[in-house]
Design a protein around this nucleic acid. Structure first.
Lengths: 264, 264
DNA sequence: GAGATGGTTCCATATAGTGGAACTCAATTC
DNA sequence: GAATTGAGTTCCACTATATGGAACCATCTC
């Protein structure tokens, strides 16, 4: 009675599913879209899509720009996400530990969770002298070519891991990107052995990181933590020096997560 | 053909509306909830609510904690909100101006927008601490007893203003809270005259602020900016000294907002 | 093991969503 | 300045979906 939760999360259940799918599509544009642009990528007929968009707009999930005639994700989402971030993400309870780690290592720290095979960054601490990079809370990244992504996938139960691998886009961002399911799978095995994952410039040239999974009780992976730097500042070997403190912080966060209780 | 957009945003359109209403209710709990707790506050019969919650969960809008049997807003929201924040909020384009203001005055800065009569904070600069994302952005506050709330309401067109006033809860937080529609309305008139709003310990004892609306082209209010401090640090008269620089920053943000174009 | 309580499934009915087609209102084009 | 195009919107007969009362299934509690 407890395995359908895993296999659930299919494509479209009912009208609500369709509406949310449309929301996702709009968000993917990363800029306000016209109705027609949306129509082109949508599988719905004009009238149907129109009504869905109308509903979402009237609900504040979409914002309609009258002047330009464009739609963008609405502010109601920001409000809802605040609650989600506080309650469903590791960020709030991990905060003190991340602060501590940040002070110790003085490099950029990322806290991420896995969402449908993609990396979702839920918190970030900048280096004292920050490197300008992608990522902010709420931003998503690829799983197959980031330290946190690989760290989490490696510790997933086999079926979930396969599922996650299947969802990867495998774009060759840099010469070192692992751009095939086979290469990734092999790497994940090694990470599972090693306990930590490295990003060896696989996503961005010159950017490297060391990442560790956050595992609670039964070995279930709930997130990952990473220390990121650039080759100008440190080498891969230099990052290795952070291995212990990174793992320790990950353990501490895991422990906090297990005992986490909301005030009643 | 352009006035129904204003009057729209009614309560429940269709199934999607109902589902989102449930989401809101769950978010309002500010902690994970059991199905039954939800049932108590919900107007839907058991079976109906059950299906709605199932759908939302399967869609990743809710996260279900198997062990505790509780629901909380899901991570998919965080992801969607990131897009919303970048595209529909003033925060990204206002950032440089807020940074500047923050450095000049060395006090806490809030950037807010109005969402259904409530204040939605979209960015914050805290003198001591670095940038926190959703911990603060996404938070909602009351409109009638905050500087930003009053600043925005004052500059709303009459019908919208009345609507906003009607949505206020009017809780007497402190002795100075304006706890009636009449008192608030009178204050708003003065703010409209003055150009800036003050929070005279109306929300929290000892906390005061000065706020200015952000008005674009036709005088449409799109947000508000405030400088907050405590009576330990400054007096109300002290805040008045910031009036000019606050108004100037608000104008700058408004200007930037008008010329804001997304890269095609 | 009888009685609560919290959670899940069924199924005939009612309701809300669907989408093809027709229409409006610009902005172009000839 | 009439004709054309294309985005955006409305209509309405048809259907798929949501609905919710009731029955069912677990657990806990005494």
């Amino acid at each position: 009675m407890n395995d359908q939760t895993t296999k659930a999360q299919r494509k479209g259940d009912g009208t609500v599913g369709k509406a949310l799918e449309v929301l996702d599509q709009i968000a993917e544009f990363e800029r306000p879209v016209r109705f027609n642009e949306l129509l082109e990528v949508s599988e719905h007929p004009k009238a149907t899509l129109y009504r869905l968009v109308q509903t979402l707009t009237s609900q504040g999930m979409l914002a309609f720009d009258q002047d330009r005639g464009t739609y963008a994700p609405g502010l109601r989402l920001v409000r809802l996400a605040h609650a989600a971030w506080r309650q469903s993400s590791l960020a709030p309870l991990a905060r003190p530990f991340i602060d501590g780690l940040s002070q110790q290592v003085g490099e950029t720290i990322h806290l991420a969770q896995l969402d449908r095979g993609q990396v979702l960054y839920v918190d970030k601490r900048n280096a004292v002298r920050p490197i300008e990079m992608f990522s902010q809370a709420g931003k998503v990244g690829p799983g197959y070519c980031t330290g946190v992504g690989k760290a989490m996938m490696a510790f997933l139960p086999p079926s979930d891991r396969d599922d996650a691998i299947r969802r990867q886009a495998f774009v060759q961002h840099t010469p070192t990107t692992l751009a095939s399911a086979e290469a990734l799978s092999k790497e994940l095995d090694e990470i599972l052995d090693e306990g930590v994952a490295y990003d060896r410039e696989e996503h961005e040239q010159g950017i490297i990181c060391i990442a560790a999974p956050i595992l609670i009780d039964n070995g279930r992976v709930v997130g990952a933590l990473s220390i990121t730097t650039s080759l100008q500042r440190r080498s891969l070997e230099g990052l290795e020096a952070f291995r212990d403190v990174l793992l320790e912080t990950a353990t501490n966060i895991a422990e906090a997560a297990e005992n986490w209780q909301f005030p009643s």
